[in-house]
Computed example of a mutant assay.
Amino acid sequence: MDVYVHSAGTVLPGAPVDIPALARRFGLPRIWEQWVDTFIGTPLRHYSVDLDSGEVRFSLADLAVTAAQRALTAAGITAAEVDLVVMGTSSPDMLMPATVNVVADRLGIDGVPGYQLQSGCAGAVQALDVARHMLGSGSFRTALVIGADSCAKHFDLTLDVSALPPEEQVNGVLFGDGAGAAVLSTEPSAEPVALRWTQVRCVGRNRPPGQTLDWFGAADRHLDRPAAVEDYQAVRDSVPPLAVATLDEVLKELDWERDELDYILPPQLSGRMTAEIHARLDLPDAREVSCIRETGNTGNALPFFQLERLLPRMIAGDRAVGVAIESSKWIKAGFALERVER
């Protein structure tokens, strides 16, 4: 059974925060700004926390509800018509209740299956994959798929950031907060975009994590270990070839040729790395759909920001492939879209 993407909706909290603003807030030198520009290349990000007061202005559920409402409105679908909800996130508001259930409750969705996938940057594609397979079974008609992340809970505004090692500093400039959602259905819309393929592959065997995001309980919350660590060099070395391999696998599965691809949605890890990955993908005829320089790395929300930009552009016959790579324990994920005639 065919599955169609009807719409996408997104949200970013607050005003954009640039690198000079971060440097001023944490007393970092000009050379730090230059380092970020040279090696990261992500000028803007948005935070759910106010950097001056430390007040958390938006929960993850707040962001997810807004993105979901926008996706539902764009699709012309009410919450009562949703019969499946799947959410991917690496930063739920709580371990329990699952944020997806809080979001469903606030949207007025009840009596339907709800799933929350705990994952990093591949979580959005994992959520799309679960929804596609469940819709394809014929048991469901309409799915709301959500991807959202917030680093607000990990912001310690009392830290001397200049004293932190680079593997801890990098997370503060790579990531921002945001949420995205998409409506999927077995019924085509007026301008149908078919979700032709989704795949998720764990490739972390014997490979150390490239990123860790710790959780602290009551017994260990005061232990002297960092909450978030990023091996950025390992990410730079591994993500581009994994992205190329994922693209090749998706194209092979669908028997699509590289020159038949109209759009590519590359991984959005950082501004600099996205440019490197896009060059490695070697798709001169495919138009790139990227948002990282305006949004920052919003984790599981990012593919929905790309989808929101892509869907209005597609005309009959257009084909697109999206790629997401997760460096925590190395997951490669991809999806394919095709604009079809009704």
Rank of each mutant, 00 (worst) to 15 (best):
V5N: 04
L63P: 04
C202V: 12
G14I: 07
W197T: 06
Q306M: 07
F175N: 04
L307G: 01
E230Y: 06
V244N: 03
A104N: 04
A122M: 03
F305T: 08
Q116V: 00
D110K: 11
R225E: 11
S238L: 13
H133K: 15
S162R: 15
V36A: 07
A127D: 02
R196L: 14
R30D: 15
F26C: 01
T158I: 03
V200P: 00
L174Q: 09
A64I: 11
A324E: 07
L157A: 03
E253W: 05
D129E: 09
D214H: 02
L128S: 05
S150P: 04
G138T: 13
Y263M: 09
R132H: 12
D149H: 09
G176H: 12
K252H: 13
G54W: 05
Q116C: 03
H6G: 07
V145C: 01
T38S: 10
A75G: 07
R207F: 08
V250K: 00
A68P: 00
V102W: 10
W35T: 12
V3A: 00
N300M: 08
G180M: 11
V145L: 14
I77M: 02
P20Y: 15
L223T: 07
G322E: 07
V100T: 08
G176W: 13
R30V: 08
Y4S: 06
A79W: 11
F140V: 10
E288R: 14
L84G: 03
Q233G: 00
E288H: 02
V125S: 05
E249D: 15
R258L: 08
